[in-house]
Nucleic acid binder design. Structure first.
Length: 856
RNA sequence: GCGGAAGUGGUGAAAUGGCAAACACACUAGCCUUAGGAGCUAGCGCCGAAAGGCUUGCGGGUUCAAGUCCCGCCUUCCGCACCA
């Protein structure tokens, strides 16, 4: 009895299976198609490999920013990589030698946090995440050459960070100095700026981050500051926004430094000003609370000391809360006076909380009449306000003086002794000359950009290859002892500075110079070091004797197209420009800049907000791929908005793209047999209007998409154009089925459709290509060429306007002459009716576009 | 405050100075059916029964013609900010 029931159940299940199988024939099944092709592609490691530099083809290096291996791709990645992948595939089809690599920015704090939380070693956690994300990328079908894969946490990679560090040390581009760092007392460790959120620790919402002085390693990026600034003008392939952000970050400022002697003391105060022309209006000197002179004065004055530490405290708090501009201006008089070198005037020296020690000289001359902040401060403390610049434009205003503070440089000097009457610009020049001649000042350019602090008191990063010896001081690790391996066995805790300092086997070494006992540096490098040169490593990823081969790098560089998020506009993109210049000066490369063109894609948002766990609006790529397929997911990412704009993720939209791909698939299923017939039966050459119409649309679509890839990158309209083409094919079902459209034309239509889809929906394109009997991988098939003759319309509809208002549409050949256009417009019934009884003053014909009648 | 970008249907959006709303989503109606996250057909900016009129943040301007160019303003987003 049991057996009978079992047999029956089996039969039903069997029937159901057959039934499902039949249904599958009619149904687009992305999972089946994509699994099949994923396996085939995985079995062909050469598919996405670049050819040797001797290939003779033009090279094209397309690069997407490498991800941090968090363990999960997010939609931002999918969008970024879908853009790059479409471009790479297109360039392959255009016959270029394409380098399209991927890697992992694998060092960083999250691995240590995960280690704490899950008791998993950072290395293990990171490598597992890399494996998981690589699987995701392969599932989506991105065309990376995995043979050049780079993971920055592996010794094969980070040994070259150390190597570069030593080369830069030799060139004086690495140095050590005391510096302020963010310190979380709860974590008992240093935090990166990004880990300080409104002055609080990112892990301890209630803990204020402190500033501490520590010995830190620095890269002398300021040695290249002017070149980094000037280079921006030449980076025409970079978004203006990014160039502007970098200019602001570099913050070049031209001005003058002037020494003010301190009355009754031997010292001088050096101030920086961009407005030396206003110096006769200086009615006080303002010092930063941490200025050395203030420290000296406070040392012998307990009362002053208390007040100054209050100012420092205020400044610190403001800095921590991230709202420095909102601080209430506050200061104390030092009781001392300074001498204005131009006129010998004695002016009081104050100490103010709005003056910063780390900009300029930490001291300013205060000119209340011509500076907003000085004005506010002078009002508060009743410091004299002396007007020394009068506006030139307005006579009436000049007589009574301008409204103060008058900050414009569009004026002439007054109350300035022999300089009266000069314009601001003239005065600046003259006053600088005088200062230089009398040796109390000079013209000076200062920058906001500071040297790059690279020390991190953390475990999961590149060990800094230096040794501290009591006899020999700082000793670099010799090249033949590289890499300094990051020890595996380590206990990660949240307390007590550099974790490496607690690994005795790591710390204790013999000094390479004297052979005596010495200690290793236990700080590791900022992870931005890793990402500053990784794209050079891709060109020669397996090199065990050098970071890369210069000749190979020279072939591939500069990167033709770099694609990533705008959040890297400053740090990563300045550091990697700096690194490129350093490598150039080391003689390793010839290019001055890493990337010819940069594209910054928009964010992926959902319900009007950036996707984030806390908002609960995260859409998982895995989920999308499982429901709609990889093709639909990535094609939606390109279709929903132009790539540079923010994209609002709407799942219904993905479903729509998936339905579209289903239509394409069914279309191919239906007509592929007809298309294949053409291989055996000669073309009759008899194609009616429908065939012509379809071919016209086809060639228009080719032209549109080709053009877009060449610069505009509006892939959303490319996808729309393919949809229009498919809609037309579908509307011509009767003619396609009946044979009215000949088999060779059907074949051509489907073949080109597959080619056009290849950059956007590579799985389906490969499937169609195979079904149509295409030769080799579609990726290597030549990109179709648009035939202008076939694309041309024989008749177009153009608007006829009367006084700029649309009144009729007339049909006419697009290449008809001006008279024909005018005639066509004038004979139209609607036009006649509107013109009747009036006078045509003028007829404007824009051939091929419009006719406008000016009528009275 | 400085710098940058953007404002178009119910939604995502499209439009070399020349028919505003292509392509899609959602919605409505109908058909088909293996009742599906399926397919097909049609409709779908606003007002209006229709004819027709109106419509690209607001106000000006240039032009035969402006979503597009120019001037002023408003709003939103992003970056920088007591930078001397």
């Amino acid at each position: 009895m049991v057996e009978v029931l079992a047999a029956k159940a089996l039969t039903l299940r069997h029937l159901h299976w057959i039934f499902m199988a039949e249904e599958k024939e009619l149904r687009y099944d992305p999972a089946a198609i994509e699994t099949k092709w994923q396996q085939r592609w995985a079995a062909d490691p050469q598919l996405y490999a670049a050819e040797p530099t001797s290939s003779g083809k033009s090279k094209y290096y397309v690069l997407e920013m490498l991800p941090y291996p968090s363990g999960q791709l997010h939609m931002g990645h999918v969008r970024n990589y879908s853009i790059g992948d479409a471009l790479a595939r297109h360039m392959w089809m255009r016959g270029y030698n394409v380098l399209h690599p991927m890697g992992w920015d694998a060092f960083g704090l999250p691995a240590e946090n995960a280690a704490l939380k899950n008791n998993t070693p950072p290395r293990e956690w990171t490598l597992a995440n890399i494996a998981a994300m690589k699987r995701q990328m392969q599932r989506i079908g991105f065309s990376y050459d995995w043979a050049t894969e780079v993971a920055t946490c592996l010794p094969e990679y980070y040994r070259w960070n150390q190597w570069f560090f030593l080369r830069m040390y030799e060139k004086g581009l690495v140095y050590r100095k005391e510096s302020k760092v963010n310190w979380c007392p709860e974590c008992a460790t240093v935090l990166a700026n990004e880990q300080v959120i409104n002055g609080y620790c990112w892990r301890h919402e209630e803990t204020l981050v402190e500033q501490r002085e520590l010995e830190q390693w620095f890269f002398r990026i300021t040695a290249y500051v002017q070149e980094l600034l000037d280079g921006l003008d030449k980076l025409e392939g970079w978004p203006e926004k990014v160039r502007t952000m970098q200019r602001n970050w570099i913050g070049r400022s031209e001005g003058t430094e002037i020494d003010f002697a301190v009355e009754n003391r031997g010292e001088k105060i050096r101030v920086f000003t961009t407005r030396v022309d206003t110096i006769f209006g200086a009615t006080s000197i303002q010092l930063a609370p941490e200025h050395p002179l203030v420290t000296a004065l406070a040392a012998t004055d307990a009362g002053l000391k208390t007040q100054v530490s209050k100012l420092i405290e205020e400044q610190k708090k403001a800095k921590e809360s991230g709202d420095v501009g909102a601080i209430e201006k506050h200061g104390v008089p030092s009781g001392r006076f300074a001498v204005n070198p131009y006129n010998g005037e004695l002016i009081p020296i104050w100490i103010a909380n709005y003056v910063l020690m780390d900009y300029g000289t930490g001291a300013i001359m205060s000119v209340p009449a011509h500076d907003e902040r000085d004005f506010e401060f002078a009002k508060k403390y009743a410091i004299p306000i002396r007007e020394v610049i009068r506006p030139v434009q307005n006579e009436a205003e000049t007589e009574h003086g301008a409204k103060l503070p008058f900050v414009s440089e569009d004026g002439v000097l007054v109350n300035s002794g022999k300089y009266d009457g000069l314009t601001c610009a003239e005065a600046q020049k003259r006053l600088q000359e005088v200062a230089a001649r009398s040796a109390f000042g000079e013209a000076k350019v200062i920058f906001r950009l500071k040297d790059w602090g690279v020390s991190r008191q953390r475990y999961w990063g590149t060990p800094i290859p230096m040794i501290h010896c009591e006899r020999d001081g700082l000793v670099p690790v010799p090249d033949d002892q590289l890499p300094v391996i990051l020890p595996d066995k380590i206990e990660i805790t949240q307390t007590g500075g550099s974790p490496l300092a607690r690994v005795p086997e790591f710390v204790h070494v013999t000094c390479p110079k004297c052979g005596g006992a010495a200690r290793r540096e236990t700080d590791t490098m900022d992870t931005f070091v890793d990402s500053s040169w990784y794209f050079y490593r891709y060109t020669d990823a397996k090199n065990a004797t050098a970071p890369f081969d210069p000749a190979t790098a020279q072939y591939w560089f500069p990167i033709d197209q770099y694609i990533g998020g705008v959040e890297h506009a400053i740090l990563h993109l300045i550091y990697s420009r700096f690194w490129t210049k350093v490598m150039r000066d080391l003689g390793m490369i010839k290019n001055d800049e890493p990337a010819q063109r940069l594209f910054t894609q928009g964010m992926v948002i959902k319900d009007g907000a950036k996707m984030s766990k806390s908002k609960g609006n995260v859409v998982s790529p895995d989920d999308m791929v499982a429901r709609y397929g990889a093709d639909a997911t990535r094609m939606y990412a390109l279709f929903a908005a132009p790539p540079d704009r923010d994209l609002d993720w709407q799942e219904d939209g993905v479903a729509g793209v998936s339905r579209f791909l289903g239509r394409v698939w069914r279309l191919a299923e239906k007509y592929a047999p007809i298309a294949r017939v053409s291989e055996r039966i000669a073309s009759t050459g008899q194609n009616g209007g429908t065939a012509q119409k379809l071919l016209r649309k086809l060639h228009q679509t080719i032209a549109k998409i080709t053009l877009d890839f060449e610069g505009r990158w509006h892939f959303n309209t490319c996808v729309a154009a393919i949809m229009e083409l498919v809609n037309e094919l579908q509307a011509a079902d009767a003619q396609l089925t009946s044979g009215e459209v000949s088999a060779p034309v059907v074949r051509e239509l489907l073949r080109v459709l597959a080619l056009l889809l290849a950059p956007f929906a590579p799985y389906l394109a490969a499937e169609l290509w195979e079904e149509l009997g295409g030769e080799g991988p579609i990726l290597r098939a030549p990109w179709p060429k648009s035939d202008p003759a076939l694309a041309k319309e024989d008749e177009i509809e153009i608007p006829v306007q009367i006084n700029g208002k649309l009144v009729a549409l007339v049909r006419i050949a697009p290449d008809a002459d001006t008279e024909a256009f005018e005639m066509a417009a004038l004979v139209d019934e609607k036009v006649k009716a509107r013109v009747a009884g009036k006078m045509i003053v003028k007829v404007i014909v824009v051939p091929g576009r419009a006719v406008n009648l000016v009528v009275k």
